[in-house]
Design a protein around this nucleic acid. Structure first.
Length: 209
DNA sequence: ATCCCGAGGG
DNA sequence: CCCTCTGGAT
């Protein structure tokens, strides 16, 4: 529990920064957020959800038109295909409602384990695990919790070290820590609250203090 | 140049 | 395991 306590002090307000008003919108926004800042996602989701507010309407949208609206988020062709496919599946196979089980979410096009965990925890209040993105996976490796890149293993190890309630909040804390301090290159170890709790596995050159 | 709050496919 | 998809930020 030590790791979690220290992170809580360091990032008291960490939270999801995507703008959404229902689970459907969060699924779409989260898919768009891959390799892209939340700020830019929020810029495109405004017009996007005004034009296609629900699964039924997005499922019927012209792919070209979707691509045009989300271009600036990168990977726009794949993302357009995926969010439209999501809308189709949610509309046709789930009665227009986003499924609330991990196994069903992961079957939606463009939704992997990371996105599914974000949606469950953030929009449904049903977090089933810690969200492991590239940041969190890296932290897990440096802490010495995992040695491979398998997100599922990292998730299992972190779940064992973090309090059982509020997993989604802990996830946001970890993500923020990985982004701001435990960076991929030149991690700011001098500013890290974890201190000696970290084994610094593979940390070649920390930033000067 | 290099990396990113991924996922799918080989 | 590896690769690809893309634009934007730094």
């Amino acid at each position: 529990m030590r790791i979690a306590e220290k992170l809580a002090l360091a990032y008291p307000d960490a939270a999801c920064s995507l703008v959404f008003s229902n689970p459907f919108q969060l699924v779409i926004a989260t898919i768009l957020s891959a390799q892209c800042t939340d700020k830019r996602v929020n810029q495109v989701t405004g017009p996007l959800f005004r034009r296609w507010p629900d699964a039924e309407s997005l499922a019927a949208a012209a792919p070209r038109e979707i691509e045009r609206m989300i271009r600036s988020t990168g990977f726009y062709r794949a993302k357009a295909r995926n969010i439209r496919g999501c809308a189709e599946s949610i509309h046709a196979r789930h009665g227009g409602e986003v499924p609330d089980r991990l196994e069903d979410l992961v079957k939606l096009p463009g939704v992997g384990r990371k996105t599914a965990n974000v949606v469950l925890g953030t929009a449904m209040g049903r977090a089933e695990g810690i969200v492991v993105d590239t940041h969190v996976g890296r932290i897990s490796r440096r802490l010495g919790l995992t040695s491979t890149r398998e997100a599922v293993k990292a998730e299992r190890e972190l779940v064992a070290v973090v309090p059982k309630r509020h997993w989604i909040a802990w996830s946001h804390w970890l993500i923020e820590h990985g982004r701001a301090v435990c960076r991929a290159r030149r991690p700011d170890c001098g500013r890290c609250v974890l201190g000696r709790l970290c084994r610094k596995v593979g940390v070649e050159r920390p930033a000067a203090e």
